[in-house]
Design a protein around this nucleic acid. Structure first.
Length: 281
DNA sequence: TCCCAGGGTAGTC
DNA sequence: GACTACCATGGG
């Protein structure tokens, strides 16, 4: 077991995990267990430092995007002419864009459509228990994310029983499309962001928003700006925007924030959702 | 009971 | 191209 130490100035574990880009993590001791594909790490904060403990620290150093200088990104957002963006940057200073596994992002965000985050987590959890491999870490049992082969081996009925609803058909079709070689998730990483999105959208159940999420969280394409119901509301309320077409709203944000778009999206998404949570408390 | 959730598809015009 | 009914499920 290896361990990495990292400053927590631009890495807040809880905020980064809790902003809807990852669905598999859980509280553990003084921090969290974080799962990615068949890998796991234990992360916690102590005395101004983050500690990442894993059998594969190299993987998780990249996973948490540790090589990138987030002071540049955060300062860009802090100095935005949009008040909502600078306020978000202040609140979400420790939020980073994780580098996650492509297959896991693809299937996870297909599940995410017209769904709620707690329910998405529950469906993915049930899927891992049913089709993943059982492993243990520091005495704690966990299940890996299923392989595409395992996902393709089941029928639509199987996924309906796991609570997928109408999305069951998409999982079966997409898993088989990968098995058949209709799409290669590694190969398409060579494409431009526009080409990558277009390629992902040939898959059943993957529209513009889901493709944006996969591009951002699975390929670190930060010239992506996923627009969901939260962002659409934020666009209307906080930017006084008048566009209604989500594609055009995405284009508007991309033009506004350029190569920082993906980071800004996470900042404001975190901000908007944290406000909502506080209203309920 | 209706509305909503990190939306997308297929049909119509 | 734009518009819309419909799609499962569970929580508020």
């Amino acid at each position: 077991m290896e361990i990495i130490e990292f400053s927590n100035e631009y890495l807040n574990i809880k905020d980064t995990l809790d902003c809807g880009q990852i669905f598999r993590y859980k509280p553990f001791n003084d921090g969290f267990l974080v799962f990615s594909g068949d890998k796991v790490c234990y992360v916690y904060e102590q005395d101004g430092k983050c500690y990442i403990q894993s059998e594969d620290t190299e993987y998780f150093a990249n996973f948490f995007d540790l090589k990138r200088d987030y002071s540049v990104i955060n300062n860009f957002a802090l100095s935005s002419r949009h008040d909502i963006v600078s306020r978000s940057a202040k609140l979400a200073k420790g939020v980073r864009i994780l580098n996650q596994q492509r297959e896991e992002m693809l299937f996870s965000f297909i599940i995410s459509q017209n769904n709620m985050i707690p329910r998405i987590k529950a469906i993915i959890e049930r899927t891992c228990i049913a089709l993943g491999e059982k492993k243990s870490f520091d005495g704690e049992e966990y299940y890996t994310f299923p392989t595409v082969k395992a996902l393709a081996s089941k029928t639509e009925e199987f996924y309906k029983n796991l609570g997928y609803g109408y999305r069951a058909r998409y999982i079966v079709e997409v898993a088989n499309a990968i098995i058949n070689g209709d799409i290669n998730l590694e190969k398409i990483s060579e494409l431009t962001t526009v080409g990558l999105k277009k390629s992902l959208m040939t898959l059943k159940g993957v529209g513009a928003k889901v493709a944006d999420c996969i591009a951002l969280f699975g390929y670190h394409r930060v010239d992506s700006f996923p627009v969901d119901t939260w962002i659409e509301r934020l666009y209307r309320e906080d930017f006084k925007g008048e566009l209604t077409d989500r594609q055009k709203i995405t284009e508007w944000f991309l033009n506004e924030f350029k190569e920082y778009s993906g980071y800004v999206q996470q900042y404001v998404f975190y901000y908007k959702r944290s406000l909502e949570k506080n209203d309920k408390n």
